[in-house]
Design a binder for these strands. Structure first.
Lengths: 317, 317
DNA sequence: CACGTTTACGCTAGTCGTAATTATC
DNA sequence: GATAATTACGACTAGCGTAAACGTG
């Protein structure tokens, strides 16, 4: 059956399609025309259906089934080139370290997942991490001192290559001994006034105003009391009873803290893989293809049993 | 170089990797062990780097570069099978019509783009369209009387396979002879009170409440005056001076109407390709793979010269 | 008849198998 | 010394080229 199809056949098919006849294809391929004809015929006999309809005078044209095969053939031939170029680079140690930026909002766990995926894709290739604030990270991407970054959305999709890799619900972070911790879900009206700890507005201007808007939608005014630059600072504040905080549900919690979802609310923090459009690290196309295909699966179970619904609102990075 | 790599080689590599040594691989492949050894050696000589490190006693293991090749090899071998099964189905006319649902919110232009992409992927294969309201479409997906659908987000990602295919800014639809049409952008405070035409809340419960929220965020109360079931009904109402409407910027406009963006506001309608997790139309995996890879490019220029920024807010389907 | 594909046939490359050799634990 | 990969060599498959036949405009 189709298991005797070889790359050689695909090369012939593509050449025939592009040359529009067997003869021209044969010239391109430095083969005799009968050789091509014979191979294609053998292939068609093998797979059980024709790839081309021999059109007599002006050129052959692919059948519908043939077009499917041709599309795939072009792809796969291109991939073959890329893969071996890349693999040779790996072998020669010519893959420069991947300079990966991230903002404090991105959980170490997600970074670890990314690192694992990268190790799987490019075994033995180094990653250099730089965690700074969002705007600075984007600046460095622009200057070319970073190859890519893991950042909260939104990010200008016309300016950067963006692949979303995570959509993580926001939950309320509180002390485990808080009376409200006995509830599995929280009523927004009960807790709105107690949410007082936020990320530094300077570091994430849009995120901050977004948060205020989200509460306004629910008819809740918000009182910003304390602000922090990192998730761990926020957690420290929660622990010290400064108030509650809204955090990514995948944030690693310090002992003595717990998280609860807000009933009926499905705010999320969206995280994306971002790279410069003219970024030139050779791994970038592979990474993006991989992320688009398979996504990134942080191997951790959902925080609560409740199904997480795609939500209307996004926390802006 | 790598252009002499054939599928045969990849099969050998994968068998060796899975069998962990040349001998077991040879058995699986119904070949002699030296044949395998010789082929792999020839391959490695050709590509210029080793795939396996011969580990003496307990099995060979892939080099870093080899792992990259192996990952790709597995993929590409699987693809080869799928492609020819699919192509044979196309040839035999065994591809059932793709029963595609869509909601009234989805522009015909986008559907056409999808249809073109499908025709490119599966030449000659039929699409059966069913346009009904969102909830009914989801019901039919569940019952298996639809294979897939093009729908506004959000849709439960745990319940359905969802691939976003479009993110289209919302603009204000008004009469071309309206005085405000002279402005290239509109001030939200000037027009909020005049936006009176909405989609029927019954048909899109979440979309409706979302719209009200979005205005609330901007501090604008919204007065729902008229409602319509389809975009063309909405346009008729705008024409008859019932008020302005908020529509997808890619909606085909009737003569006498025009659209303008709202300054500083970047609301969007997000459209996705949705299918049942146990949907069994053979084309679905291919379509999803294609959409994830290349997305869907509605070949139409941007409505205004202004760059569209990814936005914070999404109109719910 | 012209142009292009297919069939026929001999040649050779290269793939496979058997057997002998080498390497590693 | 046992297990497993490599080398050696002969056999045969099958991909190639040349030349002739076949089909369409």
């Amino acid at each position: 059956m189709s298991s005797s199809v070889e790359f050689r056949h695909l090369e012939y098919l593509v050449a025939i399609y592009e040359g529009k006849n067997f003869t021209k294809a044969a010239e391109r391929l430095y083969r005799s025309q009968p050789a091509i004809s014979h191979q294609v015929r053998a292939l068609e006999d093998d797979i059980g259906f024709p790839i081309f309809v021999r059109g007599g005078r002006d050129g052959v044209s692919p059948t519908p089934a043939g077009r499917l095969v041709l599309n795939w053939a072009r792809n796969v031939l291109a991939e073959r080139l890329e893969i071996f170029v890349m693999a040779r680079a790996i072998h020669n140690g010519e893959v420069p370290p991947l300079r990966l930026g991230f903002s404090p909002f991105v959980s170490p766990h997600l970074l670890q997942t990314f690192r694992d995926a990268y190790e799987e894709l490019f075994p033995g290739c180094e990653i250099q991490l730089s965690g700074t604030e969002l705007l600075h990270t984007l600046q460095r991407l622009g200057h070319g001192t970073l190859d890519c970054a893991v950042l909260p959305l939104p990010v200008d999709k016309d300016m950067w290559n963006v692949v979303q890799i995570m959509q993580s619900p926001l939950v309320v972070c509180m002390r485990a001994d808080d009376p409200l911790a006995s509830q599995s879900q929280l009523d927004i009206h009960e807790i709105a006034a107690r949410i007082k700890i936020f990320h530094d507005p300077e570091l994430h201007p849009s995120a901050h105003s977004r948060l205020i808007e989200m509460f306004a939608e629910e008819g809740m005014p918000l009182h910003v009391a304390s602000s922090a630059a990192t998730p761990s600072d926020m957690q420290w504040m929660v622990k010290q009873n400064y108030g509650f905080a809204l955090i990514d549900q995948f944030t690693t919690l310090e002992p003595g803290l717990t998280t609860r979802p807000i009933a009926g609310i499905h705010w999320t923090a969206d995280i994306a893989f971002v790279s410069s459009k003219d970024g030139n690290h050779m791994a970038l196309p592979f990474i993006e293809k991989f992320l688009k295909q398979s996504g990134l699966n942080p191997g951790r179970k959902r925080a609560r049993s409740e199904r997480i619904r795609p939500q209307q609102l996004k926390l802006i990075g």
